[in-house]
Nucleic acid binder design. Structure first.
Lengths: 239, 239
DNA sequence: AATTAAAATTAAGGTAAAAGTAAGGCAGGA
DNA sequence: TCCTGCCTTACTTTTACCTTAATTTTAATT
């Protein structure tokens, strides 16, 4: 399936004029394949034969009710289904949703709202995957890895934790990786008051950071000093 | 993630009593991790930090509107979001759904309907990724086992139960196992009002938790302090 | 090479965050 | 109503982290 508009939809309602209207609305919205049924029996046949990708059900049907029909279909398939009914009592809505309906729309309804809700559901179901299961983003510096979420710096055979200030500073540098971060800006992100006089303190922290990420402090490769301006974190010193 | 009830939810509304009510409703329904925010700014912070699995948004907020906020969040994530608003005009519903909301619920609403609709959406979105139902998941810390469903902490020859607060806090830490959880966030998940002044109380609870899981409080191995930031639960101290 | 300002290095001392402790308060159940 | 268990408050003590300050090294400028 390419887009949700190539879904096959099944609309079940006993009023012919409603069926015609719905079909028109859905076609206009871009759904090319809309099947209709006006009773449970017909709905069952189409459902079995066509395996629709979405079902819109009225509740009152001549030869049964939509609730039972939905239950029946749910046993066979996890396809998106929604109720479209004139019955707006709380109990009915709760019943319908409780049976696993993806929505419960009451008549009269806004065509555009129906389309939006239906499209939303179909999109969720047929174009689902969000959140690519991402492992925590880590900062990798040579053999050393920094995980900001856990505040851990580690290599193969050891492990250290970052203190609050170190965490703030290194994060700031990482966020601006490759660019110069002025001492002022670094101070601002680690200290609330923007008093000056933190320059020296900052240096001490930078020193500790360098130790922690195993820099040779006299020959830093990753956490570089930019004289007169600030510091810079580079991921790959060869570049 | 094992079930949808382990989703982290974010509720944004400017009325404190609504927040408290929603939190209660959702907790009762089984959602264990419900965060709340009363303005856009706070919502942004939590959204960025916690990556919630579902968002419930009011439209009228003191420092902005829910529509813009949803647009903003949509750019960053495809997470399920729904509106909960007193404004029932057609245009607003269409606008909300058009921006990609998964639902638009109007106040007053039936608690059960909210829960059904939310659960339905979450199931659609996350079900495909859910792992097959396993036996009760337990947190194992050395010789001690914590069962969150029963709230029981036990070792070979003894057994204790968790209190409500302990349960909430430990659950939160477990959900973010290995990562730093700020004191703020811990407080938020255990107390409704996000008043400050819970820091001390939090500490006392942490202390009790440490006793309960048989930590040597002076040399914790599992429930670690991250000074200036918060706490962290590690499953295996050797790693 | 001399000069000088910037940055690095130390180690000690200060301080705020967290731990510890105990008593008081409050709600739910008997 | 009292009782019990849980939560909160308030206070002291401890400690991990941060800051300070003095000295040394480095790098840019002349």
């Amino acid at each position: 399936m390419k887009t949700i508009f190539e879904s096959t939809l099944l609309v079940v309602d006993d009023e012919p004029e409603i069926l015609i209207m719905l079909k028109k609305i859905l076609n206009q919205a871009g759904f090319s394949s809309v099947l209709t049924a006006d009773c449970c029996q017909q709905a069952r046949e189409i459902f079995g034969a066509e395996k629709p990708n979405g079902v819109i059900l009225d509740i009152m049907l001549p030869d049964g009710d939509g609730f039972s029909l939905m239950q029946e279909f749910r046993l066979k398939s996890n396809v998106p289904m929604l109720f479209l009914s004139a019955r707006d009592e709380d109990e009915n809505r709760l019943l319908g949703l409780g049976l696993g309906a993806d929505d419960y729309i009451t008549k009269p309804f806004l065509p555009r709202e129906l389309v939006l809700r239906l499209s939303g559901i179909l999109r969720r179901v047929y174009q689902p995957m969000l959140t690519p299961p991402s492992q925590d983003e880590c900062l990798v510096l040579g053999n050393v890895t920094v995980n900001f979420k856990s505040g851990v710096v580690q290599a193969r055979d050891w492990k250290k934790t970052l203190t609050a200030k170190e965490h703030a500073l290194l994060k700031k540098l990482w966020d601006n990786q490759g660019n110069i971060v002025t001492s002022d800006n670094l101070c601002r992100c680690a200290w609330d008051d923007d008093l000056y006089g933190y320059e020296n303190t900052l240096m001490v922290h930078i020193r500790r950071l360098r130790e922690k990420i195993e820099e040779d402090p006299s020959q830093p490769k990753y956490l570089l000093t930019v004289r007169g301006m600030g510091y810079k974190l580079v991921k790959d010193p060869t570049l």
